[in-house]
Simulated assay, not measured.
Amino acid sequence: MNKIKILAAALVLASGQLLASGVATVSTGDGKSKVQMSIEYDAGHTRMNMPMESQQGSGYMLFRDGKVWMVANVQGQTMVMDMARMRAGHPATGGAALQQEFISARPTGQKARVAGFSGEVYELTWKETGQTRSDKVVLSEDPVVVEYSNAWLGMAEGMAAAMGHKMKNSISGYLRKEGLGMLKMGDSFEVVSIKPGKVDARRFNLPKSTFQMPSMPR
């Protein structure tokens, strides 16, 4: 009987992870260029709402069905762009920039609390654009943080793939393997809040484009 209860609990936990959804707010950038963005996610879908840079337009990026789309509304015109198709026929440039090769993550023994979640401080070392870099990061085992982090990293990997970059031995691969989520990275990235809960499925629908992008020359 105990085995049955344990199995049932495991199935409930697994299904909860598959159906994980919520909204996170993150702060990115340095100094005056620092902005906040909201990230909505559910099973297999992620929507990253871009910050408003002017009163003339707004937009968001949508990850669904293994593809990344850019949706922009400019002066009443809706543009829907398949990022992979936009790159078709064009060799990837600056490829190493998105191929952050993971080297190591060393626990410092310090604890930190970010956006109400407990985490541990690590010294993260990776290779980027041919250079070895290092910074302090706050990683957490909290399931809410891990679920949000996996959704965000899935979109990042989708964008890298759309731009023709291959992610080998990546930071995201390390986090998934260890069951960790990222709360903070140096001074350039920090989670402001994570609110788990159901997100309206319509938020992940692709709107109809009212403006046709001209064909890009090959």
Results as ranks from 00 to 15, higher is better:
F204M: 04
A24N: 02
K67P: 00
G95Y: 06
I171T: 10
L19N: 14
D187K: 12
S27T: 10
G164T: 01
Y122V: 03
A97F: 07
S193C: 02
A156Q: 12
K127N: 11
D200P: 05
Q212T: 14
K127P: 01
Y148R: 01
G16T: 07
E123H: 08
A97T: 10
L124S: 04
L13M: 09
A161V: 10
L124N: 00
A201E: 15
G173M: 05
I6F: 11
L139Y: 03
G158Y: 00
D65F: 03
S134F: 07
G29C: 08
G197E: 09
G44W: 06
S54D: 13
R87P: 00
I103K: 10
I4M: 11
I4K: 12
P217F: 12
K198G: 06
M48I: 08
V191I: 03
G66C: 03
T129A: 14
L62Y: 00
G158M: 00
A97Y: 09
G197F: 05
Q131C: 02
W126L: 11
G130D: 08
M37N: 03
G22E: 06
L175T: 02
D187Q: 13
A92K: 01
S140Y: 01
L98W: 07
S209Q: 13
M182W: 00
S33N: 11
Y60G: 02
M52R: 13
V144R: 09
V121S: 00
V144W: 02
A10M: 13
N73Y: 11
M52H: 09
R133V: 05
R202V: 15
G186Y: 08
R64Y: 05
M167Q: 15
M79S: 07
A10Y: 02
N150D: 14
S140T: 07
L180Q: 01
T210D: 08
I4H: 10
S172G: 15
Q212P: 00
L153T: 04
K136G: 02
Q36P: 01
P51W: 00
V74T: 15
M159Q: 13
V26C: 00
T93E: 15
G197K: 08
S38N: 09
Q56M: 13
I194P: 03
M86D: 12
I39P: 01
M70Y: 12
A162H: 07
F102I: 11
N73E: 14
E120K: 08
V146I: 09
T125C: 07
G164P: 00
Q17F: 12
A162R: 01
A96V: 05
P107Q: 04
L13W: 06
K166Y: 11
K195L: 11
F211R: 08
E141K: 12
V191T: 02
L7M: 11
D82A: 03
A9F: 08
Q36G: 01
A161H: 14
K67L: 09
